[in-house]
């Protein structure tokens, strides 16, 4: 009996339940299978606590054998289990909002009884930490990309649209204002040394957007400085005429102009 052996911890692995390293139950029937039902509901682990009595086990079986309406949002195993208010059965549910496999301990109100490898991994991938870290990496990558391009002018690898988009996104973000100066510098280097194609046109557009970003942050002198640099670049000897034309068009579009006034 569970009460005699202490806590029993079962892991849900798609169509089977495991206890330790052993499969203790398997059923691959798509509608009837208890493991599949749990798996679909995001349940990753079921723990039976010491002291569990027959009525609670029967209640649990009742829930697990209920035919579920798959289209219903409310009618799922987790909800039904929650409604039963089990006191000796704890479920560990995958956080639906997170793509990482992370147990949502808040849903079960139980401190973690045994740190498994999977959980340790998950803990290392807390989403909010990852996104901040990811952001830092994105900025770093954007800078490295631009630096690499600037350093190898003779055989430039045209940036992919994704990379250009990444750069564009970065310069639009307020917190990257401090690197926008450097970014502008390397962008100028890249633009000046690249062949005319769709990617280099995109990079020039990013320069134009940097101008607007500076305007929006009320760095008018900075915006003017960028426009001046773009104009200088457009006049550079040996620059592809199409690039010069585009630069001229951009500076014309963003140059300060007086509105009609008396």
């Amino acid at each position: 009996m569970p009460g005699e052996v202490g806590e029993i911890e079962l892991f849900v692995e798609r169509d089977h339940l495991t206890f330790g390293s052993e499969t203790v139950f398997q059923d691959d029937h798509p509608r009837r299978s208890i493991p599949i039902k749990l798996d679909r509901a995001g349940v990753r682990r079921v723990v039976f606590l010491p002291g569990i009595e027959r009525p609670e086990v029967l209640n649990l079986l009742d829930v697990l054998t209920t035919e579920l309406d798959e289209t219903s949002i409310e009618d799922d195993v987790v909800t039904l289990m929650w409604q039963k208010q089990f006191t000796h059965v704890k479920t560990f549910v995958l956080d639906e909002l997170s793509e990482n496999e992370r147990f949502d301990e808040s849903k079960v109100g139980l401190s973690d009884p045994g740190q498994t490898e999977r959980e340790a991994e998950s803990a290392a991938q807390e989403p909010w930490v990852a996104s901040e870290e990811q952001h830092r990496l994105d900025v770093e990558n954007a800078r490295r990309l631009a630096e690499e391009c600037a350093g190898t002018k003779s055989k430039l690898t045209p940036p992919t649209p994704e990379e250009v988009e990444s750069l564009r996104r970065e310069v639009e973000l307020q917190e990257t204002c401090d690197v926008s100066g450097e970014l502008a510098d390397v962008l100028f280097d890249v633009v000046a040394g690249s062949r005319e194609d769709a990617s280099s046109a995109n990079l020039r557009n990013v320069l134009g957007q940097l101008v607007v970003m500076r305007m929006r942050t009320a760095d008018f002198a900075g915006a003017n400085g960028l426009i001046q640099q773009m104009q200088d670049l457009a006049k550079k000897r040996g620059l592809d005429p199409a690039q010069a034309r585009h630069l001229g068009e951009l500076t014309g579009r963003y140059s300060p102009r007086s509105t009609s006034r008396k």
Binding site: M215, F220, G222
Partner: peptide, 30 residues
């Protein structure tokens, strides 16, 4: 007018250009 437009995130490019024309030295150049 300046502060109103600066505070307005929806200011269009034309409005911004007008501001730059009025206050070309505002802000710090990088």
């Amino acid at each position: 007018m300046k502060d109103v437009l600066i505070a307005n995130p929806d200011a269009n490019v034309e409005e911004l250009q007008a501001l730059v024309a009025y206050f070309p030295r505002r802000g710090s150049s990088n």
